[in-house]
Write a protein that binds this DNA or RNA. Sequence first.
DNA 1: CTATTAAATCGTAACATTGCGATTAAACAA
DNA 2: TTGTTTAATCGCAATGTTACGATTTAATAG
Lengths: 118, 118
Amino acid sequence: MRLNNIKKMGLVKTEIFTDLQNEIALFAKVFGHPARVAILQHLFKINACYCGDLVNEIGLAQPTISQHLKELKHLGLIKGNVEGTSVCYCINIANWTKMKETMVQFLNQDISIIEDCC
Amino acid sequence: MRLNNIKKMGLVKTEIFTDLQNEIALFAKVFGHPARVAILQHLFKINACYCGDLVNEIGLAQPTISQHLKELKHLGLIKGNVEGTSVCYCINIANWTKMKETMVQFLNQDISIIEDCC
DNA sequence: CTATTAAATCGTAACATTGCGATTAAACAA
DNA sequence: TTGTTTAATCGCAATGTTACGATTTAATAG
């Protein structure tokens, strides 16, 4: 159920974990930076926007925003469309939904637990 | 709505983001490693277990597991109880539930979006 | 063609993360 | 007290991440 071309995790010993565990970690990792959280929130809010809008909105330098957009795009969560000299970014709903299912299932593990053990 | 003593994010310019954005990023970051995903899944599955069990179950060295447990504990998602020479770990359900609410709300941002823009 | 504009890429400094061997600390047993 | 067991901590090597100035690329305007 992986989305786009999923990259390796460097030092992490991915081979000793299941595909699902690695997939959850990769999705979570991309949310593990407030700039990427902010980019996604903004894209959801205004539906589509240019890279430059995000630079103004968020307040990080253009190369930094570009780098964060690249990571989101690489995981398949956003799409970028060239319009003249600008690039219009928006959420990839189909992939977002797939990702959401995986993550919500992970977060809902607690439904069978009644109370703490210790 | 933050749980435990939340730490800074190093190079990350946290001050330009909202508390919620930083909180989502911190939660996501802790899930951003398959070992921590595996630890949480195992704790949910068997309800409580010793550090040594996790070392056998997961296959990373004891200091490495100990370090991952420390991060989960620091965020408040697990509790550790000393029992003789062992330490029994389990999920902190109350904090897990709070975290889940925050994350699910973030993941459900897509409910208003009908289709892709570009 | 020559600007101009917008965004990607390059290069790099500062810092963080991962993993583990070695050691320490704490509880208990004999 | 002296082992033994279990887990935390220390220290460090290898690698990743973040941020941004400088540069390049690509599209368009004049």
